[in-house]
Design a protein around this nucleic acid. Sequence first.
DNA 1: AATGAATGAGGCTTCATTCAT
DNA 2: CATGAATGAAGCCTCATTCAT
Lengths: 181, 181, 181, 181
Amino acid sequence: MRAAAEEFAVRGLDASVADIARRAGVGKGTVFRHFATKDDLIAAIVLDRIAVLTGVGERLLEAADPGAALLEFLTIAAQQQQQRDLSFLQEVGEPSAAVVQARSRMFQTIHALVGRARDNGAVRADITGSDVILLMCAPGYITSYVPDAPPGLWRRYLALIFDGLRPDGASPLPHPPPAGP
Amino acid sequence: MRAAAEEFAVRGLDASVADIARRAGVGKGTVFRHFATKDDLIAAIVLDRIAVLTGVGERLLEAADPGAALLEFLTIAAQQQQQRDLSFLQEVGEPSAAVVQARSRMFQTIHALVGRARDNGAVRADITGSDVILLMCAPGYITSYVPDAPPGLWRRYLALIFDGLRPDGASPLPHPPPAGP
Amino acid sequence: MRAAAEEFAVRGLDASVADIARRAGVGKGTVFRHFATKDDLIAAIVLDRIAVLTGVGERLLEAADPGAALLEFLTIAAQQQQQRDLSFLQEVGEPSAAVVQARSRMFQTIHALVGRARDNGAVRADITGSDVILLMCAPGYITSYVPDAPPGLWRRYLALIFDGLRPDGASPLPHPPPAGP
Amino acid sequence: MRAAAEEFAVRGLDASVADIARRAGVGKGTVFRHFATKDDLIAAIVLDRIAVLTGVGERLLEAADPGAALLEFLTIAAQQQQQRDLSFLQEVGEPSAAVVQARSRMFQTIHALVGRARDNGAVRADITGSDVILLMCAPGYITSYVPDAPPGLWRRYLALIFDGLRPDGASPLPHPPPAGP
DNA sequence: AATGAATGAGGCTTCATTCAT
DNA sequence: CATGAATGAAGCCTCATTCAT
């Protein structure tokens, strides 16, 4: 069922429940059996992705090379983000308490990953976890507007962005990081 | 009238024509007098932005410092992109011939700007105009999900992305650029 | 099962089959096992009530005091009517043959009860069985719109209505009784 | 438009907006132009009736014969109530503030009318305004279940009920009046 | 026999678009 | 020209009913 919500990837969050049901090969009513609301369906997908990513991130906290760990985390994040309009930041209406909590735990993990990489000199000193949280969805976004994007194109832009995070040739940043998440 | 379509900035492309008309202080019918279709209204806004940006780009082609010129172009592009959901790449339905043509002219300008900067050594050799076209909307996108983003936050991410484009400490890119635009 | 349809009393006839099944502690399917249709379920409840009332009425035909017998009949009818929206007259769709027949037998009984009371001088001469049939649901109806009606409130209005049926101080009625049932 | 909502009279409050629109000879959307919500439409009808009745009631407070005034009030109320399921007491969801206020003013008027009639000896001493408020919808209700009721049938039952309110042959009432409205 | 997952018709509501004034 | 009333397609959601397990 959740797999059928890949409709969101193609049509964006405006995909109608009818379309989703058709793609899933079930009736409209069946979708509502599982998710009382379209927002609930979206929340379930987001929650699932957050959980996976948090798991990955927590495992990578144990990795030997903090810089490589962060890059791998971003790689996996971008990979799963290959479906537009479902960034973890997305808020359709108010996010449920469950989403807020899961997100906050994921954010903590990311802050830790970034902290380790920064301490290690793998990323520049003026980068915060919040920066990475915001940047992590960019590769997915960037490639989402290429009509028939080749499958690995996002890797190109992740690499470019990650290069920007590296200490080499870093120019001073013109604005402080957001206090945000 | 077009200025009234700043409603899109606040509510996204789902803003209703009624809201737009109210903000513009005119009747709904008047909107349709000028733009036969909501999509036409969007196209007009996009077209306008493309024209402005193309003008800026063409002027910057004459600038002395190709690297600074590219950065300034991206700065202006990001600045005007501070309104979510209206990237130049956006396609609601099929883009009209006019949009396609204007866009293609803008793309040519960007290719030229990037070519100059690359020849000058201001950006890495493996970067193409298409890359920059795709990256130019990212600062706007990135900051669009920060609830109460401070006004200049996008500059931070533009700087980071631009650092990634610089030759210093460039790592090899894992995927060729898109043939695309 | 039928007892579980007291849900109708609380929520009206719009109570969903799911709620009814839950209250009955069975699955939705089981409800449909016993009653092919929601209307059938309603009909069964109505039928049951009609049968009870008919029994009561027929027994009261033997009572010594015809006036008291009629009052008692109305009391019992009102008592059981304390659940809104299930008057015997209610027709959801077309009443089944069984309902029509049971109802008609109950109507005969009421006509007989009223006839005896009228002959006895307990109720005014211009009252027919049809009048009583129509009036008998009124106490239930009247109290159904009192938000937190005290349990015996209906007795007050039954008494008032019954006083109207008494010969004392009867004013001439402005319209003939319905030919109806 | 409001006149077209006589659909409620035939089908009850479950009448669909589509049916109402069809009967009114307009499109569904037009109904929502005038009443943002189906409940708003109902409230508008109820409000209108309440206003009319309150006007009538306040005028009748000046009448010479308090008993006749009350009877006339009830006659007009019953007349307008000839459409089932739209009693003033009806609450679909929560009644709006406007309905609550208008209703309360109407209730005050009724209390005054009843008070005068009681002081005058036209109705029994143990009757309150609340009783009359509850009884006033009964004629409409009673006749609503007669399939092809003759037009003036309700007058018969109003007369019977009013006879019950008269002091002649009044038997003691078994339950106190509701505190309610 | 019982269950509850699946279904799809139908209800309310929104909104782009048309058109008489 | 401008307006806003009218329209109806389309979306979300509920619920009676069916049916495989």
